[in-house]
């Protein structure tokens, strides 16, 4: 998505990216980025929280108008509320490492079967 934003800027459209994966967007490099520090899935605000969603949209509109140069990141002040989600996404620890290895092996076997079937056709 950040690549799309870069292309649009290049051909003359001002853009704002609203997102929660700060490092991914900043590493790609965009003109304006409104960072919402939420779990991935609801970058525009908590589900059904219309007041928060309106504030975030308005922040994006303000950022469009006020950023004076590229790579401008503004962190939205709204909070998700709790922080539990920070430690559970793509978790890898001794409790699940064997299960992840098994899932990886299974997926590679499946991909090999798909590849061989395609070669046979």
């Amino acid at each position: 998505m950040s690549l799309v934003a870069r292309h649009l800027e290049q051909i003359g459209f001002p853009t704002v990216v609203i997102g929660s994966a700060r490092d991914v967007v900043e590493q790609c490099g965009v003109a304006r980025f409104l960072f919402t520090d939420f779990p991935l899935g609801n970058p525009c605000g908590r589900p059904y929280d219309r007041a928060m969603q309106r504030e975030i949209l308005d922040s994006a509109l303000r950022l469009a108008e006020t950023a004076f140069g590229p790579r401008t990141t503004v962190q939205a002040p709204q909070s998700w509320g709790d922080h539990q989600w920070r430690s559970s996404y793509m978790r890898v620890d001794e409790d699940n490492i064997e299960e992840l290895r098994r899932m990886g092996r299974q997926r590679r076997q499946h991909q090999q079967v798909v590849k061989e079937t395609a070669e046979d056709c």
Binding site: S2, L3, R6, E9, Q10, G12, F13, P14, T15, V24, Q27, C28, G29, V30, A31, A64, E65, G69, P70, R71, M90, V92, I97, L100, R101, M103, G104, R105, R107, R108
Partner: peptide, 27 residues
């Protein structure tokens, strides 16, 4: 994600789009 997929046994990590500049159009 690099750590997560390495745990699945994928040795070659994904290469993310990386730029040090960014185009900018003033509204």
């Amino acid at each position: 994600s690099r750590r997560y997929y390495a745990a699945h046994g994928y040795d070659v990590p994904y290469r993310w789009a990386t730029n040090f500049d960014a185009p900018f159009t003033a509204p």
